[in-house]
Simulated assay, not measured.
Amino acid sequence: MPAATSPDTPAVAAALALAAQQGGVVSRRQVYRLGVTRWQLRGQVRARRWQLIGDQSVCLHNGVVSDVGHRWAAVFQGGPRACLDGAAALVAGGLQRYEVERIRVSVPRGARVRRTPLYDIRQTRRWSAEDLVRAGVPRTRPATAAVRAALWVATDRQATYVLTSTVQQGLATAEMLGREALRIRRDRRRALVHAVVADLLDGARTLDEAEVVRELARRGIPAPTRQVLRRGTGGRYYLDLCWPDHGVVVEIDGIHHGWVEQVVPDAVRQNDLVLAGDRVLRVPLLGLRLEPDVFYGQIERALAAGSRPAA
């Protein structure tokens, strides 16, 4: 357990109250403004009741610094115009099931950068005061942070995941991401971000089916019949790709197929097809972008399994 600090003066009591709102961490500027003197701060640190984080922050206990505390310390280290950015901003804003390896902090071009191995503090031309959320720890708003995170993460898989998770968890809409994506002028991952956002908007469905057909031909897989009309328990519907002679159906799923209101209709539709003797493969658009060989290989194996049995 961290050693408690006694609020033996009004200044220390005020510092403790502020730290309680910031994960146990205050900046040197804050603590001095509250009336704690430099010699008092040094005394607390030497007595191992407080601990320094970098050269700009103080943790007002001697235990493990919390994630929230590190976020505040990272911003304090960056200076008065610093903000959490990318994945760090998303997690601070509520993104779940995402691990941040190193907190990213953005400052505007020309700002003084106090380097530290603890945090990734960088100048960026993308910094804008209009993008900031100032309630709580300063950070970029979710849509901006998601697109920047997608540009900065190590792999295309991570980029796709962070964009998709932002929409699925309700931090931003696909339309918001689309507007942010249009702000990208130059980046090696610009095309990927635009493609994933298009999937999230579900606005390029027909185009993506055409891309799948072209890729099937390139791999030497027989051409499917597209938009086949079927009738089932839920009424009439069209199949995306179908090989009637083989009894194979491929359904291409946009992001909306993962939403709650679509789960039951999709299940009814798939069960109807299975009961009619078809082998149904579900192929998510995001899966085609991340693991194309896996999904095209599954289609090829299904077709190689043989023709539909005679009725």
Score class of each variant (00 low, 15 high):
Tyr98Trp: 15
Leu41Asn: 05
Arg126Ser: 14
Ala154Pro: 00
Gly232Phe: 01
Ala111Gly: 03
Glu251Lys: 11
Leu200Asn: 05
Leu118Phe: 03
Ala4Leu: 13
Asp67Leu: 12
Gly287Gln: 01
His257Glu: 09
Gly232Arg: 03
Glu209Gln: 08
Ala181Phe: 01
Val105Asn: 01
Leu290Ala: 05
Arg219His: 08
Val274Met: 12
Thr225Pro: 00
Asp202Phe: 00
Ser128Thr: 07
Tyr32Phe: 15
Val213Leu: 07
Ala204Phe: 02
Gln40Pro: 00
Arg29Gln: 15
Arg49Ile: 11
Leu41Gln: 14
Leu290Lys: 02
Ser128Ile: 04
Glu261Thr: 05
Ala13Asn: 06
Met1Ile: 04
Gln158Ala: 10
Ser27Pro: 01
Asp253Ala: 10
Ala204Cys: 06
Ala74Val: 01
Arg157Val: 13
Glu300Arg: 14
Ala19Pro: 04
Arg179Phe: 10
Gly287Asn: 00
Pro117Cys: 00
Leu229Cys: 09
Val107Trp: 03
Phe76Gly: 05
Val58Cys: 11
Asp187Ile: 07
Asp156Leu: 07
Glu291Arg: 11
Asn62Trp: 13
Arg148His: 15
Arg188Pro: 01
Gly79Phe: 00
Gly35Leu: 08
Ala4Met: 12
Ala92Pro: 05
Gly247Ala: 03
Thr140Ile: 00
Val25Asn: 04
Val64Ile: 08
Thr160Cys: 15
Gly63Val: 08
Leu192Trp: 11
Asp272Thr: 04
Ala135Ser: 09
Gln96Phe: 00
Asn271Asp: 14
Ile121Cys: 01
Gly54Met: 05
Arg48His: 14
Val280Tyr: 04
Gly94Thr: 05
Ser165Cys: 07
Ile299Trp: 03
Gly277Leu: 10
Leu16Val: 06
Ala267Glu: 11
Val100Phe: 02
Ala135Asp: 13
His61Pro: 00
Asp187Ala: 11
Val26Thr: 12
Arg38His: 12
Gly136Arg: 09
Glu211Ile: 05
Leu18Thr: 13
Gly69Cys: 12
Gly78Ala: 08
Gly234Ser: 12
Gly54His: 02
Arg102Trp: 00
Gln21Ala: 11
Ala13Thr: 05
Arg29His: 13
Arg205His: 14
Glu261Trp: 09
Ala191Glu: 15
Ala146Lys: 07
Ser6Gly: 04
Pro2Tyr: 01
Val228Leu: 02
Gly234Glu: 09
Asp156Trp: 07
Phe76Gln: 06
Pro224Ile: 08
Phe76Val: 10
Leu290Asp: 13
Ile221Trp: 13
Pro224Lys: 06
Gln262Arg: 14
Gly93Asp: 05
Gly69His: 03
Ile255Glu: 08
Arg269Cys: 08
Gly254His: 02
Gly94Met: 10
Trp243Ser: 06
Val45Ala: 03
Asp278Thr: 01
Ala191Gly: 01
Ala267Thr: 02
Phe295Glu: 03
Thr166Ser: 15
Ala17His: 11
Val91Ile: 12
Glu175His: 06
Ala181His: 03
Gly287Glu: 05
Gln44Tyr: 14
Thr124Pro: 07
Trp39His: 07
Asp245Phe: 01
Arg48Phe: 13
Val248Arg: 06
Pro117His: 00
Gly277Ala: 09
Pro80Cys: 08
Trp259Thr: 14
Val133His: 00
Cys83Lys: 06
Leu118Val: 01
Ala181Gly: 13
Arg185Glu: 14
Thr206Ala: 15
Leu41Ile: 15
Leu285Ala: 08
Gly234Gln: 13
Asp293Cys: 04
Pro222His: 11
